[in-house]
């Protein structure tokens, strides 16, 4: 039991960075002073089937069977391609454009970089959409 606590404590203290997609746009340094900005939105990601699989792996007998059934049901109910862990709200990144305009009200921007990344530990993660760039003054 103690070793599970040790693993859980280690897991809570460390999180791995995951990079799924990155794309850099044009960088124009000839129009004026560039002020960097960074906009980030995130959502709690949780892979319930993977958590059930973990439960199955650490338990025995009837409990393990029940975890296995739970894992199978969850897998069937959440079918589809995924990037990282699933989230429970797909609108969390809808306002990124509004946020970058809030950071750069003139609308003159360059060097826009789109990043899809996460801070992940197994079945739990923070799924992140990040946009960074420079506001031209």
């Amino acid at each position: 039991m103690r070793q599970y606590f040790a693993i859980a404590a280690f897991g809570l203290l460390t999180a791995c960075a995951r990079l799924d997609h990155v794309q850099i746009g044009e960088i124009d340094q000839s129009q004026g002073t560039l002020i960097p900005f960074n906009v980030q939105v995130s959502q709690f990601g949780f892979e319930a089937a993977a958590a059930a699989e973990l439960g199955r792996a650490v338990s025995k007998g009837r409990t393990a069977e029940q975890f296995q059934q739970l894992r199978d049901i969850l897998a069937l109910m959440n079918m589809g391609p995924r990037t990282g862990n699933p989230v429970y709200d797909d609108e969390y990144a809808n306002k990124v454009m509004d946020y970058i305009y809030a950071e750069c009200p003139t609308g003159k921007m360059t060097g826009l970089t789109s990043v899809r990344e996460a801070k992940a530990f197994g079945a739990v993660s923070g799924e992140i959409v990040r946009l960074s760039g420079y506001c031209i003054l």
Partner: peptide, 17 residues
């Protein structure tokens, strides 16, 4: 309850401005 409606954002790309 756990399944609910899950989603996955694969990418969000911003073009040049």
């Amino acid at each position: 309850t756990l399944a609910g409606c899950t989603h996955s954002i694969h990418m969000s790309h911003m073009s040049d401005v």
